[in-house]
């Protein structure tokens, strides 16, 4: 039976995990590779690295992290952050990423999604969508795409954008609600459902997880096929196993392999 995926996401800056991971006794809580190994052992279904390194010069450190992770972990790895060119994707895949996540480069140039999917296959092209609810006249709110961590408005409708990038070859959508990110109030379920129901590819719900019921809601009500969370796992509040067992109790099909 096909299972729902639980994906921990690590923000990595200059080769170090931002804020650190504190759920097991790591020799170095800031080493992304150690954190990845721990999540692999804990039964995470995939792992996501988001590179928030600001400077181009320091990007090489991320490649080293990807290479060392791929040597130590035999699980799917998605890497995002600063992916702008076909060469960026090629390099990440060569160093051991299985999927790459494209964000602002897809917003500024949709054609990039098509080129990437044609070159590497749709299965490894994830388009990350950061969406925010925008009030409009006449009470008709909608979600729009924002870039640069939610600071820059684009005026692009999130649902139409999702459909467009999928038609261009995105194999998966990583959907983050900028309204909910960091709030611990749960996913933006209407947004998640609206996107998930309008595209044929898997949608990963992200942004706002504060408890384990939120993960269940993302699948049940949001119609996502996978859920991504960061802080509830990194700070040891819940283990991957606890999250999955909670989801099993809620009736969701989960992988609990030892």
């Amino acid at each position: 039976m096909f299972k729902v995926r639980v994906i921990p996401c690590l923000d990595v800056k200059d080769g170090r995990v931002v804020k650190g991971v504190n759920f097991v006794d790591l020799r170095d809580a800031g080493d992304p590779v150690e954190a990845a190994v721990a999540y692999d052992a804990a039964g995470a279904d995939e792992l996501c690295f988001l590179d928030i390194t600001a400077t181009h010069e320091n990007r090489g450190t991320m490649l080293d992290v990807v290479r060392r992770t791929a040597e130590a972990c035999f699980m799917p790895l998605t890497v995002g952050g600063g992916v702008r060119t076909i060469e960026d994707i090629k390099t990440l895949l060569r160093f051991g990423a299985d999927k790459v996540s494209i964000n602002s480069a897809a917003v500024s140039k949709r054609e990039f999604v098509k080129q990437a999917a044609e070159k590497f296959g749709e299965q490894c092209i994830v388009v990350a969508i950061d969406a925010k609810r925008v009030k409009r006249g006449g009470g008709s709110d909608r979600w729009e795409i924002f870039t640069h961590g939610g600071r820059n408005s684009t005026g692009i409708d999130a649902i139409e954008y999702a459909q467009e990038v999928v038609s261009l070859g995105a194999g998966e959508i990583l959907l983050t609600s900028m309204d909910r990110d960091g709030t611990r109030q749960g996913f933006d379920l209407p947004l998640t459902q609206a996107i998930a129901d309008s595209v044929p590819v898997p949608v990963i719900a992200s942004g706002g997880v504060g408890n384990l019921d939120h993960l269940v809601d993302g699948i049940r009500q949001g119609h996502a096929t996978a859920v991504l969370a960061a802080s509830i796992f990194h700070f040891g509040e819940f283990t991957i196993r606890q999250a999955k067992e909670h989801m099993v109790r809620a009736g969701l099909p989960m992988r609990l392999d030892p």
Binding site: M1, F2, D45, G171, E172, P200, V201, T225, R255
Partner: peptide, 12 residues
């Protein structure tokens, strides 16, 4: 209808 393509994830 609710099953997505690609078949992406873990299966028995």
């Amino acid at each position: 209808e609710n099953l997505k393509i690609p078949h992406m994830g873990w299966n028995t």
